[in-house]
Design a protein around this nucleic acid. Sequence first.
DNA 1: TCTGGGGTCCTAGGACCC
DNA 2: TCTGGGGTCCTAGGACCC
Length: 436
Amino acid sequence: MYALVDGNNFYVSCERIFRPSLRGVPAVVLSNNDGCCVARSNEAKALGIKMGAPWFQVKHFEDSAGLVALSANFALYGDISDRMMSLAAGLGPTQEIYSIDESFIGLDGVPGDLVERSHKIRSRILQWVGVPCCVGIGTTKTLAKLANHVAKTAERKPGLYPAHLAQVCNLAILSHAERQAVFEATEVGEVWGIGRRIGKQLMDSGIQTVQDLVRMDVATVRRGWSVVLERTVRELQGTPCIGLDDAPAPKQEIACTRSFGHAVTALSALTEAVSEFSSRAAEKLRKQSSLAAQVMVFIRTSPFRRDEQYSRSISVPLRRPTADTGAIVQAAVLGLQAIYRPGFNYAKAGVMLMDLQSDSIRQGELELGDEASLEDMAENSRLMSALDAINQRYGKGTMKIASSGLDGDRRVWSMRQERRTPGYTTDWAGIPVARA
DNA sequence: TCTGGGGTCCTAGGACCC
DNA sequence: TCTGGGGTCCTAGGACCC
């Protein structure tokens, strides 16, 4: 048995903790670069604002409906997430943190009434952290996800589902008829694992509701679609196929990519950006104690513009697996020089570290004399530890590689973030002040 | 004018092996 | 005239997730 605890409109809810004036009003949080709406309050949803809607298309609601938009404040969301997760963990013996606002809880062996227990955890999270969340319970992770959807939707759109399923929904204790009614009221596209593409294919072949999908024969699903969809159907039928992953493996690739605040044409600006992205990626790499054997760099123009398009990437193998910022930046910049073409308005660039391996395994090698020695490598590794320690203690970017540009204002490629709230819980200067 | 970022898994097809 | 069979590994691309 699994539960899924999921924060409602998570980023907006985080912002509302410290800005009570946002409660009850339509509010959205924008993606990086203030580009798209990535979180919407219920009031914003009611205005018809879709997930991922470009900001410039819904901006008019600012005047007409009092819509408030904020830039993403990931330092805040990450911190609130940690607090929420530690309380959610109290629901059962095991926990998988699935995303910034969701965790699966393994419920095996939990005594008593699961619904009552979930309501308690839910109010504790609301009271102690300030984030409203919903809990879905089912015999498989896919069913728990579905139950969570029901719990949220029953709250937001009265009438679609029975009112007693709002906030906490345990599909496993519903009567057969009640569960069937829920399945019939839910479109296949809402199911975890069914995206736009497969959703449309299913609809086209007459499979419209979850009930239609559950009734399908798994062999037909496998033949007509894939083993992935077969797993989803089995999970909906109550056969667990996806286990709880409470000790996630280290990442197999690490990326840092950004759209620019303004189009960039010069190689010098791209070099700054690529240096910065590389060094951030290298930092993440060291954090999970890995080494990278390859660096991929890409640059591209904006597909939304009429201009002539250009998009290219290149993989640069590293001479030996490394987590050294200098070596990774060097490789990325070399790659950039190889793919750069003058005359284009570049909108985005990125760096990905690939072929990751643990830093506890070192490939031995022959000393050929013309390359950095093992002593140099050890030296660099100490340098990186010092760099990370300084930035950890005195704040991100206290020390950085000079090729990423020194003067913040002249970095034309920096992303736009015009509406960001302070780091209320992560920055001394951002702590809210209460006045008498 | 203005459209995010960071991941994972699966499959098909080609290269290569004996 | 007539040219095998059975594997593995790698990669690119597609689909999905939040």
